[in-house]
Amino acid sequence: MPVSPKQARTLKHRSWVAFLVVPPIVFMSLFVVYPILSAFAYAFYEWRGLARGEFVGLANFKEVLFGATMGPVVWNAFLHNVYALIALMIIQNGGGFLLAWLLYKEPFGFRFHRVAVFVPVVLSTIIVGFLWKLFLNPNFGLVNQALYSVGLDALAKPWLGDASTALGALILANAWHFVGFPTLVYLAGMQRIPSEIIEAARLDGTSEWQLLKNVVWPLVAPSTTILFTLLFIGAFNWFEIPYVMVGLDGSPYGTTDVLGLVFYRTAFGNQSASIQNFGQGSALATVLFLFIVVFASMLTLWLRRREIQF
């Protein structure tokens, strides 16, 4: 069949557009869509090492959530993720909000403080984890050395070895690492508030606290929404800081165990006992994924409703 010049042109055009869009789509399908769909499917099978066995229905889910061995471990870890979320919401995001407000007024040294608060954010979590692990060392760590040097010997303790302080230490290390992120996101949010609004409130004689609570906080609600959503996802995917600072078992005695560690132990084995259970690992990943998606979208919708348009 002869091809008319116009058809040839559109054919040429079409193949050019296809050349542009097909490789990225094929790449995404292979390395994102396929693995994610498979992750759901894998959870319904029994696995022997790397080989897929029989279809077992919901057995893996049952074991992960309510089983005699896995159940208590998973719920214990889940609780620690919830603690971390609440504590980080107050320390990391709340602290970030207050720091942003101080920076917003552009005080002396404003540029320096803005750069300084973001330095830990660019560091690798592994570096941050090891650094704080060394600083928290019971004998030679900087923290206890500092306490000794000011005579507060009584307060010195093996921070990461003590069941009552270990999780708190991990949370504080995480807050040190990331507080710069909410600070600068809130700062950008505050800089978007029309300055007339703040001027007007000032002229009305509003106190600093009233201004912050009744004017600034409601107007940066979009930043709060996104920061809370990101923190929520981050808190339930928490892995690197605990892995580096307290190890794969969430020591001491599982008091720092979190879902990320449980997932890694289940799927890729404990270093001591090399066991791999891809079925239960996939079930845990699926439950966690659905939990994050459902709660994160509900929270986002709820937080969006309190945002004010201006």
Partner: peptide, 16 residues
């Protein structure tokens, strides 16, 4: 792709 955390699909990705 922007919304889905690939970290949770690490097992199938490992096999792939």
């Amino acid at each position: 792709g922007l919304m889905l955390p690939l970290k949770l699909a690490v097992i199938p990705l490992f096999i792939l």
